[in-house]
Simulated assay, not measured.
Amino acid sequence: MTPQTPILWSFRRCPYAMRVRLTVLYTGVTVDLRDILLKEKPVEMTTVSPKATVPVLNDNGTIVEESRDVMMWALSKNDPEGWLDMPAEGHAMIDTNDGPFKKALDHTKYAVRFPERDASADRAAAADVLMGLNDRLTHQTNLFGDMVKMADTAILPFVRQFANTDRDWFNAQDWPHLIRWLTAFETSDSFATIMVKRPIWVPGAEPTYFP
């Protein structure tokens, strides 16, 4: 049986899905990109992934449900500029991003849902992580030198999400190197490409091949 093009379920504004689309774009591995609405998740996705969160990759019956694992799936197929050529510290930084930083980000962004918490303390906790990134970027373009690595791509969509909780406050902070790094990301051709609005997937739709 001829293998089918892998299916990637995605949501345009989700930072987890963003970093996967960025990786797929970089590697050039073709997928059938299916954009969905989170409030109307198709049964075709939830059947293969009861977790029902994006992104989800269906590679001919092999289901990959975590965004970092989907990134690794694509990079294992093609990594022309050596995104995986980074020290173990890079993976530890992604752990921090996906754990403590994302938790502080959510508590900041959705503070109204957590009335028992101190929103200013949560924002300060997130800012501590970002200040560490700023310090790393003082004398280099990206987290591990001039070249983009997996860590940059995995973390930047979440920095953007945090910045957008209060862009004026974010831009007023003393982290010029972080702002420069984020601005370069937001004005890149790659970011523009992955953020193109595509039709919401419906059953029977023709494949939307990406990249």
Rank of each mutant, 00 (worst) to 15 (best):
A111Q: 09
G145E: 05
H91P: 00
R13P: 07
E66C: 04
W181E: 06
H177G: 02
F210A: 06
T53H: 06
L8Q: 09
T27K: 10
I63V: 15
C14L: 05
M1F: 11
L75C: 05
D152H: 01
M93W: 03
F114T: 09
D146T: 11
D69H: 06
Y110L: 12
W83S: 02
K102L: 13
D32S: 10
E66K: 03
P42Y: 08
P199S: 03
Q140S: 11
F170C: 04
Y209S: 12
Q161L: 14
A127P: 00
W73H: 02
F11W: 15
I200R: 03
V24G: 01
V159R: 07
F162V: 06
E40K: 14
Q173T: 12
F162G: 05
G99S: 14
L33P: 05
G204Q: 09
W83M: 05
R34T: 09
V56C: 08
P50R: 05
F170H: 06
K197V: 14
P87G: 04
D118I: 07
R12V: 07
R123K: 15
S67F: 04
K39P: 00
P203C: 00
L22Y: 12
V20A: 04
S67Y: 02
A121K: 13
R167I: 10
V70W: 02
A125F: 04
A124T: 13
R113D: 15
F114N: 11
A126S: 08
S190R: 03
R117H: 13
R123A: 15
T46C: 10
S120E: 15
F185L: 11
N78F: 00
D95I: 00
H91V: 07
P176K: 10
T96W: 09
A17N: 06
A151F: 00
Y16L: 12
Y26E: 09
M71N: 08
L22V: 09
K39M: 12
A104V: 09
W201V: 01
P203W: 00
M45I: 08
V24P: 01
S190Y: 03
W9P: 04
P100V: 13
A125R: 14
E116Q: 15
T46S: 11
G204S: 10
M195S: 15
P80A: 14
V202H: 07
R21I: 02
W73I: 00
W175R: 10
G90I: 00
Q161R: 12
V20M: 01
W201N: 01
R123M: 14
A17W: 02
D146F: 01
P176A: 12
F11K: 11
